[in-house]
Write a protein that binds this DNA or RNA. Structure first.
Lengths: 333, 333
DNA sequence: TTGTACGCGTTATCAC
DNA sequence: GTGATAACGCGTACAA
């Protein structure tokens, strides 16, 4: 791999001259200039970023730590982060913490060793004291994405708001009984509850929670539910994967969607629209979130003394498709 | 960010001594040792990889270029590559070429600038002369994954073989008419054809190809197909996404799966098993492919003079689920 | 306009 | 055992 010094030797000039030519800062003798450029092209010279960063203390590297890169939601996020970073000449050094605090810690160490210019991460536990300590000691501009971390720049979707949106939507469509399907630890559940409280009094009486991932258990729970009630039921699934599972079980049980049961998922994965019935879902503004995060990071890198931190909740969008369209606005199309 | 020199100053020893302590190679006075370690811990010292790599010409970086990181197949691949690399202390610098030759070229330049120790890539066009030229000039150990590139270490699934497997399976299950749904440019199509030729003579008469992605067009094509034939039809979809789309259209048309139509997808995404009916699919040995690729790369990095190149086709597995299980072996479970 | 000298943070090779 | 010293590839102040 050729170096500036080597090019200097080959062209009979000094190394700094080569540097000047290649960086085009200062004026140089056109003749020398051409000679150097020709030589560089011939040997396909690329500057050694490691060396550049040693002297300039800029690595042009952005560390990215996500909890699970194989989750297509994060994969898409990473893609957009990469695109946005690339525009400004930054590259990504990527880690997947796999929801493991130990691994996450390791990632932070490695990120530090590489002296990345900035860090974008999805923390395993944004409230963990240890993590907060590590990040602040890291002394690298950091932006949290997908989660809300107090005192750290954060770009995330307000899950509670999205959940409330689903509640309103299901109620508006005319569903009278409700099922929440998934983890109740997420804010989307809390928001769903709040939203329901606004829509109908005594909603608790009409709310069932199913948390199991086991199809048989779920089927049993549904049977029990439909034994007790005759009303049209709206289901809010924790994510699209679960929504698809639920749709499958409903089909197997010969329950009609959306006539008897309406269902809304979360994440708006690309399969939503090709499913039958197509699946209503909450779409997160993936790309916006990514580009805002990168831009914020770039700003922070340029203004290390700015102590302000941005707390930036974004709004999700409910994409209404056939699966929850009881009133037929879409099915009639 | 603290440096060795700084620690040396603080502890009153020379910088090389600090280096010795931190790397634990040579013996050092236990007393000094403790003092240095304490100081390093206190300031959360991490060695500057940039500097290390300058002198050692080892970046501990593996470049990864995929065509589309948002594709969950590649995302999973990247995850496994990362895990495997991590075991040996390597980190990933990740790029997505977005099937764009220009971008790919750029990625290769950047990868070179970072002096990565090795490169794992999914080329946009593994037969392109320009790409081959770039990679060979790159002078960095390179492994191609997912594709077959002559003269370059390659780890990939034999798509033709997988296609043939599907043909055999559909025939065995008793389907008599066949539809290939998707791009006919892929080897999986060729293999499917070959496999069919083995199973039944005059298969051409019984094969329909649907390439459109438009649901309406597809539905029309299916209607035409079922107007002409009464036989049970086996469909091989280009990938799971298309398979899901096809299943939706079939459901809408009230065509029963697998009784009237059997369907097999490709990629075995996680949704396959929660769909109803659950979707048969070709599973690629994702993890194996990733770890073989990384191991091969590590070997190449250790043996730069070994000119041998490995051409390593892997075998896909057909996961038979309800959607193509006409004989009821699974449904009866 | 061009070359010399130096420093970035580390490892490695020497003497001491 | 430990401390100078050189070297990696580059950018930059300074001198010529």
């Amino acid at each position: 791999m050729i170096t500036m010094t080597e090019i200097a030797r080959l062209t009979g000039v000094s190394q700094p001259t080569v540097s000047r030519v290649l960086n085009g800062n200062t004026a140089v003798n056109p003749e020398i200039r051409e000679r150097v450029l020709a030589c560089a092209r011939e040997h396909d010279f690329q500057p050694n970023v490691m060396a550049q960063s040693l002297v300039g203390s800029k690595t042009r590297l952005i560390g990215v730590i996500v909890t699970d890169i194989s989750n297509s939601f994060f994969a898409e996020l990473v893609k957009h982060i990469g695109e946005e970073a690339r525009k400004d000449g930054y590259s990504l050094i990527l880690f997947s913490s796999d929801y493991d605090l130990e691994k996450e810690k390791e990632c932070l160490d490695v990120v530090k060793r590489y002296r990345v210019d900035g860090l974008i991460m999805v923390p395993v536990d944004e409230n963990g004291a240890e993590w907060r300590g590590m990040v602040s000691r890291l002394d690298i501009p950091t932006v949290v994405i997908t989660r809300h971390a107090t005192g750290i720049d954060s770009f995330y979707v307000a899950h509670d708001e999205a959940g409330a949106q689903v509640a309103r939507h299901l109620h508006e469509q005319g569903y009278e009984e409700y099922i929440f399907f998934g983890n109740t630890t997420d804010d989307k559940y809390l928001g769903f509850i709040d939203g329901m409280a606004n829509e109908c009094r005594e909603f608790r009486k009409h709310l069932t929670i199913i948390s199991s991932k086991d199809s048989q258990v779920i089927e049993a729970a549904l049977k029990e539910h439909f034994a007790k009630t005759t009303g049209k039921t709206g289901i809010f699934a924790y994510n699209d994967r679960r929504a698809v599972q639920m749709m499958g079980i409903l089909q197997k049980m010969k329950i009609r969607v959306p006539e008897q049961v309406g269902i809304v998922g979360f994440d708006n994965i690309y399969l939503c629209e090709v499913l039958y019935p197509s699946l209503s879902s909450i779409a997160q503004p993936n790309e916006t979130m990514a580009s805002l995060a990168v831009q914020r990071l770039l700003y922070r890198m340029d203004h290390p003394n700015d102590q302000k931190r941005e707390d930036h909740p974004l709004h999700a969008e409910l994409i209404c498709r056939q699966s929850s369209d009881l009133k037929g606005g879409i099915l009639s199309k």
